[in-house]
């Protein structure tokens, strides 16, 4: 009984492990990238965007620290400026990487941007020196 289960287990294990060798290479590669639930977009551009999001998070935390008085005005200004510059630098790197943009899509985006400007979300930021 035990031996039967053991053999089944072994056969199953080998089957699962060997499966990728019996598939087309492209399918395997697709699987490889979509390997995890956290599989966020790959590539250095996405990486740069994530880094920028992190910087934005730091800016929000800095603003909170400034609000509570943990960081004084002068330090807040200088640290805020450093972070802002870092974000801009990341954005510049990202832009340098992006492929030549398609004019039609560019137009679409510009329209969308204009529309967003019209509906006008309320401006809200903790920054004092806007």
């Amino acid at each position: 009984m035990g031996i039967v289960i053991g053999v089944l287990l072994a056969v199953g294990a080998v089957a699962v492990i060997a499966w990728p060798f019996f598939r087309r290479r492209s399918d395997v590669a697709k699987d490889d990238i979509a390997g995890g639930p956290g599989a966020r977009p790959q590539g250095s551009q996405a990486e740069l965007q994530r880094s920028r999001a992190e910087i934005f998070r730091l800016i929000r935390q800095l603003e909170a620290d400034h609000g509570s008085g943990l960081v004084n005005e002068g330090d807040f200004r200088s640290q805020f400026d450093d972070l802002r510059r870092e974000a801009a630098r990341l954005m510049m790197e990202e832009a340098a990487l992006s492929p030549m943009s398609d004019p039609a899509a560019e137009l679409e985006r510009e329209i969308a941007a204009a529309r967003a400007g019209l509906t006008g979300r309320p401006v809200e930021t903790g920054r004092k020196d806007a």
């Binding site: 934005f56 800016i59 929000r60 935390q61 401006v123 809200e124 930021t125 806007a130």
Partner: peptide, 8 residues
């Protein structure tokens, strides 16, 4: 930053 979208 002003757009507030990236706020936590």
């Amino acid at each position: 930053l002003r757009s507030g979208r990236t706020g936590s």
